[in-house]
Design a protein around this nucleic acid. Structure first.
Length: 551
RNA sequence: AGGGGAGUCGCCAAGUGGUAAGGCACCGGAUUUUGAUUCCGGUAUACGUAGGUUCGAUCCCUUCCUCCCCUGCCA
């Protein structure tokens, strides 16, 4: 699909601006876990590079030692790979450029384009002005080059305390764009960095670091989110000055902004995600109800489905608020084509087939995948006693219900047609057993046999295996938990997790994490990668099947 | 003396001077031993608003409206 970023790339390719090269980058700060919003950015950056025979760099934006950690780096790398993208030979760190960045900073000072400001943060804020009024120059703005250089070197040598000074670019305190009002580019932090250790006690800030990192890596198109639009003049300013003095060469990378993803029934802010985890509203970063990549993976989302979702929702400059249904649909589409089928009864009710010989067992078989016979067949038993889904029986059927009813017939899928003869109930009137009869001439696969409209899933008491199944619903009850005056946490869905004991067909005994199954007529499920063990299976429901029936 | 962006079907999203792609959702119908899938068909006289330019405007110009972002030594 066409989009405005592709148009820029194609125009550049046509003009030969970058010699036909496309180099993008995904630049996470290693200070949190990736979520579906990041996945979109990953797919846009890696996907575009792939489409134009280019490369995409993974670059950790690790310029703030007080917030970052290797734990996050590992998780980010794992998730980018999981999504299906490779950054072999293209893994970078902003911290690798600290020396270069420092050298350029001195260069800016020497050209009279940067100065050490010794105002307090409060003074700086006050002097920055407001949206309507210009800022005022710092009293330290006219320090001499030699004084600035000496001071900056002392900062680097650790002779000054955190916050005592900051290095600022000398641009224009009266600019209507606040980002151009002498932005700070270096601050003092006597903090060890997880990669450079204690080598540095001055660390560069984002605006200064990012554009130069892009240029050093010869990024052609630097894609970021809309909130950086007002930073672009600064991005261009820094690079233009460096090009002027021959420190960098043309063409410079071009920053292009697109809208970040919003998904209904979620909140994307890092702060809120952390809060959900830390307050125990969910069980960790990989809780299957979460839209973190770790959570989606555990839930049963596939990389292909997330890529499909990203492709469909596209990249544009309009603020997007994508319906969760779109994500679910992408998953179903992928899994319908790939997932092996199995029969599992989530809410069992016992059926006794009274004309079935006591102790007699027969084998039934079904395709692993109904649209792909090459995947082979699976077999399971049928016996006198089977379990069916409680909701597949109605003692007093509503209009249009064509499953099992008293006196009615239904096919046990891949088995026989049975007829409900009568029901047994407990003292509360709840049906405990359905007594049925079967028609021996109707075994599945029999040629010329008669058929009935309804076909339901079932498992045989003789070979069924037990499993715990976790049924998930959306974490929030409203489309936009951030909307309105209330706290978003007030909209947490109390029924977002329901755990049931289910009966599964025996082929599921070997189910392993990262395998997806369609439990026929129920939905898509995957073994829980943390809790499921051989002999103690735990399945997560990734998505239900579309249900077109309305009573 | 504010600046920068965005407004095309319920949700995404192409088109950017020649008479509104596509996807999701939805509604019909066919097939179906998953009320699934698949397959056919339907779904904006209309592009935030009001004017203007033009033979012709979603597209160009102007007005107004709505929404988002920016005053971290965060990214």
């Amino acid at each position: 699909m066409s989009n405005f970023i592709r148009q820029v790339i194609e125009a550049d390719n046509a003009s030969g601006k970058h010699g036909g090269k496309v180099v993008t980058r995904f630049p996470p700060e290693p200070n949190g876990y990736l979520h579906i919003g990041h996945a979109k950015s990953i797919c846009v950056n890696f996907g575009l590079a792939q489409d134009y025979n280019g490369v995409c760099h993974l670059r950790f934006d690790d310029t703030n030692p007080v917030k970052e950690d290797v734990e996050y780096e590992d998780s980010i790398k794992e998730m980018v790979r999981w999504l299906g993208y490779s950054f072999d030979g293209h893994l970078y760190y902003a911290s690798d450029y600290f020396s270069k960045l420092y050298e350029f900073a001195e260069h800016f000072i020497e050209r009279g384009l940067a100065y050490v400001d010794s105002q307090s943060p409060e003074e700086m804020r006050a002097n920055r002005g407001t949206f309507e009024t210009p800022g005022t120059n710092s009293p330290f703005r006219d320090r001499s080059v030699s004084e600035n250089l000496a001071l900056f070197r002392e900062m680097r040598e650790g002779k000054h305390a955190d916050g005592a000074h900051v290095l600022r670019l000398k641009i224009d305190m009266a600019s209507p764009n606040i980002n151009l009002r002498d932005p700070a580019i270096y601050r003092i932090r006597h903090t060890a960095h997880h990669r450079t250790g204690t080598t540095w006690c001055v660390y560069p800030l984002y605006d200064y670091t990012h554009c130069i990192s892009d240029a050093l890596e010869r990024i052609t198109h630097s894609l970021c989110t809309l909130e950086f639009e007002a930073h672009r003049p600064l991005y261009d300013w820094v690079l233009a000055r460096l090009v002027e003095s021959g420190k960098l060469t043309l063409p410079s990378p071009q920053q292009i902004e697109f809208a970040r993803l919003n998904l209904t029934y979620t909140v994307m802010s890092k702060r809120k995600l952390i809060e959900l985890v830390e307050t125990g509203l969910v069980n960790g970063w990989d809780d299957p109800r979460l839209w973190t990549l770790a959570g989606l993976r555990r839930r049963g989302y596939t990389p292909a489905s997330i890529r499909l979702f990203a492709e469909r929702t596209g990249a544009s400059k309009a603020h997007q608020w994508v319906d969760m249904i779109e994500l679910e649909r992408a998953l179903r589409e992928d899994l319908d084509a790939t997932a092996a089928r199995a029969m599992v009864v989530l809410d069992p009710i016992r059926v006794v087939i009274e004309n079935w010989p006591e102790g007699h067992v027969e084998l039934c078989s079904a395709p692993v995948h109904p649209h792909d016979e090459s995947r082979g067949r699976r077999t399971f038993e049928i016996s006198r006693e089977v379990f069916i889904e409680r909701e597949d029986f109605m003692e007093i059927p509503s209009k249009g219900f064509f499953r099992l009813v008293p006196g009615g017939e239904v096919r046990l899928r891949y088995g026989y047609i049975i007829k409900c003869e009568r029901v047994e109930k407990d003292e509360n009137g709840r049906v405990t057993t359905i007594v049925a009869s079967y028609d021996p001439a109707t075994k599945s696969g029999t040629q010329g046999g008669r058929n009935v409209k309804g076909a339901i899933h079932w498992v045989s008491r003789s070979d069924a295996i037990a499993a715990e199944v976790r049924l998930y619903d959306r974490l929030f009850t409203v489309e936009n938990p951030d909307e309105g005056d209330g706290d978003y946490k007030d909209y947490v869905n109390p029924n977002s997790l329901q755990t049931v004991r289910a009966w599964c067909e025996p082929t599921l005994a070997s189910a392993a994490a990262d395998q997806s199954y369609q439990f026929e007529r129920n939905g898509y499920f995957t073994p829980d990668r943390v809790d499921s063990k051989a002999g103690a299976l735990v399945f997560n429901r990734a998505a239900t099947l579309k249900d077109g029936w309305k009573p």
